[in-house]
Amino acid sequence: MSPPTLYRPQRPASALGLPYPETLIRAGLSGFPSPAQDYEGRQLDLNEHLIKRPSATFFMRVTGDSMEAFDMYADDLLIIDRSLDPRPGHIVAALVDGELIVKRYEILDTRHCLTSGNPRYAPIPLDSCDCQVWGVIRAVIHEYPV
């Protein structure tokens, strides 16, 4: 039997942590416990930093023209948190006519709109068309070629 395709629904707890800087841990003199002892063995976890709610967090990849207004470039990795309610100023992944598009959520003249970082695209009023917010973008990861 060929190995069946394996599916992994559960994201594992972070397996990769960075050691907390050693310099902050000082051994107690004279046998008293060091006040820094609580921090011993603690590690910095990038998942913990960027992902607040694993069940509502999704990753997406950016395509299209670079958009400096949003500090985003093609192939950047987006961390999208659906547990956040969109507020004005949030950058969101939105569904516009069935397509996923990066927009800014704004209120213009009391109307809720999705705006573009590119002046070529006019703001889209949220109540006017077939569009809705899919999720709020919490972070962008841009990797440099190394």
Partner: peptide, 30 residues
């Protein structure tokens, strides 16, 4: 027990959007 090799036919499978780096959804900048 080892058995004959079988291959799944899955011509119309959508991407594994949430579990594979190569298959993440694409979101357009516009």
């Amino acid at each position: 027990s080892p058995d004959a090799a079988w291959h799944l036919r899955c011509a119309n499978r959508t991407n594994r959007w949430t579990t594979r780096w190569e298959e993440l959804p694409r979101v357009r900048l516009r």
